[in-house]
Simulated scan of single mutants.
Amino acid sequence: MTELAKKRPEYRNINIFKDVRTYRMPIAAVVSILHRISGMIMFLLLPFVLWMFDTSLSSEISFAQFSAAFTAGLGFVPGWFVKLVALALIWAYLHHLIAGLRHLWMDIDHHIVSKEFGRTSAAVTLVLSLGLTLVLGAKLFGLY
C-alpha cells in the first residue's frame, strides 16, 4: 500500500446523521443525480405537457385558453405558478438533454474519460442548462 492510500479515510458504514453532512459530492455526482431528478420531473409533468400540446393545437379558442393560463391562471392556480411549473419543465428538459449528451459522449469516446474530463464536462453541463433556462425563463416571464 502506498502512503496516499494509507492516509485516506475509509467510509464503510456511513452514518446518516454524522457522515452525510460532512461528505462533499463531486460535481459529476451532482450532475448525475440532477439527471435522474430531471427525468423524474419530466415524467411527472407529462400530463401537463400533453395538456399544453392538446390545448395549444385544438382550436383558436383553446389556444386563447392556453395563453390565458399563463397570465390569468387555471381555476384556483395562479398564472405565475403555471409559469413556474413550465420553467421547471424547461430546466428538466434542458438539463436532461445536455447531461444525456454528456453521458453519450463519454460512452462513445472511452479514451477521454478521466476525473478531470468528468469535472469539466459536469461544470459545462450545469452552466449550459442553467444559462439556457435563465434565458428561456426571462422570455417566459416577459422580461424581453
Score class of each variant (00 low, 15 high):
52 M>P: 02
138 A>E: 14
65 Q>K: 05
133 T>P: 11
87 L>I: 11
140 L>A: 15
60 E>A: 13
2 T>Y: 03
63 F>R: 13
60 E>C: 06
65 Q>H: 13
115 K>A: 03
84 L>F: 15
119 R>C: 06
12 R>C: 15
68 A>Y: 08
130 L>Q: 01
59 S>R: 08
142 G>V: 11
134 L>G: 14
87 L>H: 14
82 V>K: 06
49 V>S: 09
119 R>P: 00
73 G>V: 15
28 A>W: 03
26 P>R: 04
28 A>E: 02
104 L>C: 13
26 P>F: 08
140 L>S: 12
44 L>C: 12
16 I>G: 09
86 A>M: 13
113 V>D: 01
6 K>G: 00
122 A>Q: 07
119 R>W: 05
101 L>Y: 00
129 S>I: 02
64 A>N: 13
78 P>I: 15
130 L>H: 09
131 G>Y: 13
31 V>S: 02
86 A>V: 06
21 R>I: 01
120 T>R: 12
46 L>S: 12
13 N>W: 14
46 L>Q: 04
51 W>S: 02
141 F>C: 14
105 W>Y: 07
89 L>G: 14
64 A>H: 00
51 W>E: 01
27 I>H: 07
17 F>C: 07
106 M>S: 02
40 M>Q: 03
87 L>C: 10
5 A>P: 01
116 E>S: 07
40 M>S: 05
76 F>L: 12
86 A>G: 15
88 A>G: 15
59 S>V: 07
40 M>D: 02
108 I>P: 07
92 A>K: 08
39 G>H: 04
95 H>A: 10
130 L>P: 01
93 Y>S: 12
55 T>E: 09
7 K>C: 01
37 I>E: 03
46 L>W: 06
89 L>H: 13
103 H>F: 04
71 T>H: 11
14 I>S: 08
24 R>W: 09
117 F>T: 11
132 L>G: 14
8 R>V: 13
62 S>F: 01
61 I>C: 04
41 I>N: 00
77 V>Q: 12
133 T>G: 10
21 R>F: 04
116 E>I: 04
110 H>V: 01
136 L>W: 14
115 K>I: 03
2 T>I: 01
65 Q>A: 10
121 S>A: 15
128 L>A: 07
101 L>S: 00
13 N>G: 08
19 D>A: 06
141 F>R: 11
79 G>V: 11
142 G>M: 15
55 T>Q: 02
46 L>V: 04
81 F>N: 09
8 R>T: 12
51 W>L: 05
111 H>Y: 06
58 S>A: 13
77 V>D: 12
115 K>Y: 11
35 H>V: 01
114 S>K: 03
20 V>H: 00
124 V>I: 15
84 L>H: 05
26 P>G: 00
86 A>Y: 15
109 D>T: 09
78 P>R: 14
59 S>Q: 00
71 T>N: 11
107 D>V: 12
19 D>T: 07
89 L>V: 08
71 T>S: 07
63 F>L: 14
35 H>R: 06
84 L>K: 14
120 T>Y: 05
54 D>E: 10
139 K>Q: 13
35 H>F: 10
99 A>F: 04
10 E>P: 00
